[in-house]
């Protein structure tokens, strides 16, 4: 069990590293566009697509690891007043029984969408560059899958009381 947990954590961490690289690409492509347009009067046809794709990719790929780090903001001043065990069961249930299936469903649709983009050679709809869309769809699907797994693992950990220390520390 812990082996699987660690594997999921590692997967999330790797995607988060990729997201860091994507953040750099975002900044670089946008500043390049500014320079290309203003200094050289030769704007690119790709900077706009690359920028929005980077933004989308970086947050989806980063979401799982952010969950591992408990960085998704929550309001817990009321919850902290609840008995620890009650809170564990409640949060564990919400994560395992509600959130994991929901994000599982989203991941499933995301994979389907990426596959369709691949088989139909779908291209960007309004961009003059008209890049193939499946790599972007694929990255979104990958990020959602990692997020789903991390949600599931988070829920199980809470049930098992593995994160009990966290709970008591904050309370």
């Amino acid at each position: 069990m812990t082996g699987i947990f660690t594997a999921v954590d590692t997967f999330s961490r790797i995607l988060s590293r990729v997201a860091e690289a994507v953040a750099l690409i975002l900044v670089a492509s946008m500043i390049y566009e500014v320079a290309a347009r203003y200094v050289f009067s030769a704007p690119t046809i790709w900077a706009f697509d690359i920028s929005y794709m980077c933004t989308g990719t970086l947050f989806v790929l980063g979401a799982a690891y952010a969950l591992r780090e408990d960085a998704h903001v929550r309001i817990d001043f009321l919850a902290q007043k609840l008995p620890v065990r009650f809170r564990q069961v409640m949060e564990g249930t919400v994560f395992v029984a509600l959130l994991a299936p929901i994000y599982g469903g989203l991941s499933w649709f995301a994979v389907k969408r990426a596959w369709r983009a691949f088989t139909t050679a779908e291209v960007e709809m309004v961009s003059p560059w008209a890049p193939l869309m499946w790599p972007f769809y694929g990255l979104l699907a990958l990020g959602l899958i990692a997020f789903t797994l991390q949600i599931f693992v988070h829920g199980l950990r809470i049930f098992a009381g593995n994160q009990k220390a966290d709970f008591e520390l904050k309370a």
Partner: peptide, 8 residues
């Protein structure tokens, strides 16, 4: 020879 520019 104009320079088409993408602006959201």
């Amino acid at each position: 020879g104009a320079v088409p520019t993408v602006v959201p």
